[in-house]
Each structure stands twice: as C-alpha cells, then as structure tokens.
Amino acid sequence: MSARRRAREAALQILYEMEITGTSPEEALSSYMETFAVRPVAKDFVRELVLGVWARREEIDSIIQRHSRNWRLERMASIDRNILRIATYELLFRPDIPPKVSLNEAIELAKRFGSEESASFVNGILDAIYRQELGGMSRAARVS
C-alpha cells in the first residue's frame, strides 16, 4: 500500500474522530501520531489533508450538498461524508494530485471503511462534482 493511501486512511480516521468526539484538529492529529506509526513521508500529507479539509469544511460541505441529490449532509454516514470531504478537498485544492487519483482513492477508502453501498454512493457524488464543478476549468484557475 502506498504512503499516500495510508495517509488518506489516517486522515479519514482523524476526521472521523474529530466529528464524533469534537476534538480539535491539532489534538486529533497529535493523538493519532502518538498512537499509530505513521511513516515520516506520510505525516505531512496527513496533516495537510486534515487541516485543509477542516479549514475549508463549510465550502467543501456546500459543494458536496449541492451534488448529493436526495441526501442531506447530516444524513450521510460519517465515514462516507469524510471520504467525500477528503476527495473534494483534493479535487479543488491540490493541483498536484490528478483528479482520477483522488476519485479512485476515495472509492477504495469507501470499499474498505464504508458500507456495502458506500463505494457507489461516493463515486456518484464525486463524479458529479468532478464533471460539474471542474468541467472546463484548469487546475491552476481553480486553486487561485
């Protein structure tokens, strides 16, 4: 398993903990890093994902909500919601990550951590975000 995939898994677990317990990003990151062995190469990526998602959570949630027909954000499973947040963050704010990588990694996270329907649910929403939010727009234009 790649260092980035492990980092995404760690970010998902940290965001889940933050949502369930109300822990701050710094506390959750510190606790996770002390408890689990995170390779040095992955630590920066974990931190960037968690802090990036947290800082832009309202914007990211608004985008997810806009593309999740018949599903309010608060009704989604917490795991699915946080997978969508990570992938949406990557799609919109990480021009160094190819969109297809972000989409594929999110689907793999959903298969591993979500329910039987999670992968298709996550795929459907992310596909809509990718096509409608990012269609025809260069990555450099999105980030600025």
Rank of each mutant, 00 (worst) to 15 (best):
P98V: 13
I97P: 11
L49H: 05
S62Y: 02
S62M: 09
I14N: 05
E133T: 01
Q132L: 04
R85T: 02
Y32D: 09
L126K: 10
I63N: 01
P99Y: 07
Y130D: 11
T21M: 12
A77R: 06
I86M: 09
M76K: 12
M76G: 11
S138Q: 05
Y89G: 04
I125D: 02
I97N: 09
A42H: 13
P25R: 07
A141G: 02
R112Y: 06
K111F: 13
R142H: 08
A119K: 00
V38R: 09
L126C: 07
I64E: 01
L103F: 01
N123W: 12
R4V: 08
L91K: 01
E26K: 02
S31Q: 05
P25G: 12
R94A: 11
L84Q: 00
A77W: 04
A141V: 08
L73A: 15
A119Q: 01
A119G: 04
M76Q: 13
W71T: 07
H67F: 07
R8M: 04
G136I: 11
Y89F: 05
P98W: 14
E34V: 13
V50K: 10
L29N: 09
Y16N: 11
L29G: 03
F121C: 12
E58D: 13
F113M: 00
G135F: 03
L126N: 05
N82L: 14
T21S: 10
N123K: 07
Y89C: 03
G135S: 00
G135C: 00
R57W: 14
S115C: 00
L109Q: 13
A3S: 05
Y16W: 13
R6T: 11
A10Y: 05
R8K: 09
L12Q: 01
D96W: 15
S30M: 02
A87E: 06
P25K: 06
R47F: 13
D127Y: 04
N70H: 07
Q65Y: 00
R72V: 08
E9L: 08
E74Q: 11
L51E: 14
V46K: 06
S118C: 07
S2P: 09
L126M: 06
L84M: 07
L109M: 15
S62G: 08
I63V: 03
V46M: 09
E17I: 14
E48K: 07
E9S: 13
M1S: 06
A110H: 09
L84Y: 10
G124R: 13
S68P: 05
R66F: 01
S62R: 09
E26S: 00
L103D: 11
R142I: 09
V38G: 10
E133S: 01
I64R: 04
R8A: 08
E105C: 03
P98Q: 12
T21V: 06
T23G: 10
L84G: 02
A77H: 07
R72N: 11
I86S: 07
F93R: 08
R47N: 10
I86F: 02
E58Y: 03
I64S: 05
T35F: 13
A87V: 08
E48C: 07
P98R: 14
M33F: 11
E17G: 15
A87K: 04
A10L: 08
E108M: 00
E108W: 03
I79F: 04
I60S: 04
E59G: 15
N123L: 03
I129L: 02
R139V: 00
M1F: 08
I97A: 06
R6I: 14
I20A: 06
L103H: 05
